[in-house]
Amino acid sequence: MHILEGEGVTKYFGGLAAVSNVDFYVEQGEVVGLIGPNGAGKTTLFNLISAALVPKPGIIKYKGKNITRKKPHQICRIGIARTFQTVKIFANMPVLQNVLAGSFFGTSPGMSSTDATREALESLEFVGLSDLAATPAGDLTLANQKRLEVARALATRPELLLLDELMAGLNHTEIAESMELVKRIRDRGVTVVMIEHVMKAIMNVCDRIIVLHHGQKIAEGTPQEIATSKTVIEVYLGEQTNAGS
């Protein structure tokens, strides 16, 4: 079943198309990688799915229902959670409170405070931050702040999780841990769409990959297919040549 679908999703900034006529789908239970050079429109697509932006034109469907006109908090409540490219934690609040906010207001807003706390603690445990529950979130290392964002998102009990560059800025050990984390999230039955530049992680974790370039979908397929795709290689080589010159 397609948990998420996009039809002709487009977004213009001024005269520039950040995302242009993109069709996509995500199957329930899979891990989809969203890759492409900088400025390809990946984060814009996440913003469109999570209703931070409204596509024009285009339709996004979640479990077959049109969600294009919904507000961000409604998107979260129907089961789509996200993290951010630049971490957006509640820096002056303790770690536990960050996650508690997620469990209180996520998909089951009527939750009692005991249940919410249990939920929050369980999420912290899951990402391995239990020991730091009382620390102000702003004092965490970058890797832990990213984990905290994942824990906060998971505490909303999503069925679909959008991870925006979970591994950027992390060292090798931390990347390995993050890959493990994504797999464990999938094993919980949560569908994952992840934007990532770390190719090793993408190839290793994803079931399927979508490639964006200049706002358009240029390729789609299994990691194997993408790794050998001529178009994709050209785009990436082109980027490297540009960066080198």
Partner: peptide, 15 residues
């Protein structure tokens, strides 16, 4: 408080 800390993140966790 979540809004005061980061409004965008607050809206995306269902507030």
């Amino acid at each position: 408080r979540s809004i005061g800390e980061n409004e965008e993140a607050a809206s995306h966790i269902g507030i």
